[in-house]
């Protein structure tokens, strides 16, 4: 029996930003799949390309960025042939039906995502009528139902309120209601809890987990907070400078991180129990400028396991040290292949 198809797959995606100072590789050969009904977390520091990955799926790469190569396929139904999102015109009818309807987005800053001059009811009605073809009354009823589902008290009375009349946590709940209103199959959550307080963040994470169990949606959750990752992820993809350096199931990556970057990230979070006040393990240096990417493995100048003459000369490729893990690190690659490639170099 073949495994059920994923909701979405990205294959060897390259995105570049064409600036006056030259091209910047924002995504460099990103490949991943989002399994049906599960949560994939994209982890990375600022500039790692995690948000651009999300925007690529929506076919909304901000200018001057452009997809150079690679493809994104999306399965509208598990038993149908996939749609190639990357080949669609961003403004086409089909893409617009998918974006917001079948694949929706929650962004980091709910105040920026909601219109300040339209009521919540107005905004929800617009989205619902656009995608679900309901009349005004039915659309309103559906909006009330969604707001109740995300835990807004007295939803029917609040349709006529504006975004500023809600607290930060409530605004993010409204964004979630909006994103889920048209029963999407895939939800892209781009740092949805970063601007929120810990108690509110905990409530939003619980809400997403509940809604996922109830509606069976797949979630791509973008964050830099490993604590949040552990709370919500089924699978993890760690990104560094536009590349996925490690990918695997959440439990196995946390228990046995392979890539030196993942290991260092996990070590650098202060713990809530155990010894305190001691020095934290850090990653030396900082994320290099995208104009000045190190040769070979882009992590090599900061890596504790740096192999001189190897890591700075060869670009690591994706390897599987264990069946369910993908790692891009030459430490885990076949040494004869490395020698062959090094020998082929001038």
């Amino acid at each position: 029996m073949a495994a059920p198809p994923p909701v979405l797959s990205i294959e060897d995606l390259n995105v570049q930003f064409f600036t006056d100072d030259g091209g910047i590789k924002a995504l460099d050969g990103v490949s991943l799949t989002i399994p049906q009904g599960k949560t994939l977390c994209i982890v990375g520091e600022s500039g790692s390309g995690k948000s651009i990955t999300g925007r690529s799926i929506l076919n909304q790469i901000p200018r001057p960025g452009r997809r150079v190569s690679g493809r994104i396929r999306y399965w509208r139904k598990p038993d149908e042939a996939p749609v190639e999102i990357s080949a669609l015109d961003p403004k086409s009818r089909e893409m617009r039906a998918i974006r917001g309807g079948e694949i929706s987005l929650i962004s980091q800053e709910p105040m920026a995502a909601l219109s300040p001059v339209h009521t919540i009811g107005n905004q929800m009605r617009e989205a619902i009528q656009q995608h679900l073809k309901l009349d005004r009354k039915a659309a309103d009823a559906h909006a009330v139902e969604m707001l109740a589902k995300v835990g807004i008290p007295r939803p029917a009375d609040r349709l006529s309120n504006y975004a500023f009349e809600f607290s930060g946590g409530m605004r993010q709940r409204i964004c979630i209601a909006l994103a889920l209103a048209c029963s999407p199959r895939l939800l892209i959550a781009d740092e949805p809890t970063t601007a929120l307080d810990v108690t509110t963040q905990a409530n939003i994470i619980d809400l997403l987990l509940e809604l996922q169990a109830e509606l069976g949606i797949s979630i791509m959750f973008i964050t830099h907070d490993l604590g949040v990752v552990a709370e919500i992820a089924d699978e993890i993809a760690v990104m560094y400078l536009g590349r996925i350096v490690e990918q695997g199931s959440s439990v196995s990556v946390f228990q046995d991180p392979k890539h030196p970057y993942t290991r260092a990230l996990i070590r650098s979070i202060p713990s809530m129990t155990g010894e305190r006040g001691s020095r934290l393990d850090t990653i030396r240096g900082m994320v290099p400028s995208p104009f000045n990417r190190p040769s070979g493995c882009t992590f090599n100048p900061r890596c504790d396991d740096f192999m001189p003459g190897v890591c700075d000369r060869l670009e690591p490729w994706a390897d599987n040290p264990t069946p369910d893990r993908v790692v891009r690190c030459l430490r885990y690659s076949d040494s004869t292949k490395i020698e062959q490639l090094l020998g082929a170099q001038p």
């Binding site: 108690t199 963040q201 905990a202 409530n203 990752v229 552990a230 709370e231 992820a233 959440s250 439990v251």
Partner: peptide, 21 residues
């Protein structure tokens, strides 16, 4: 507040240890 802090341990995922305010 303490119960709401996310713990970087996926084996604790889904265990309802949080106190919801």
């Amino acid at each position: 507040l303490l119960s709401a802090v996310p713990v970087a341990d996926p084996t604790l995922k889904g265990k309802s240890r949080r106190i919801r305010l």
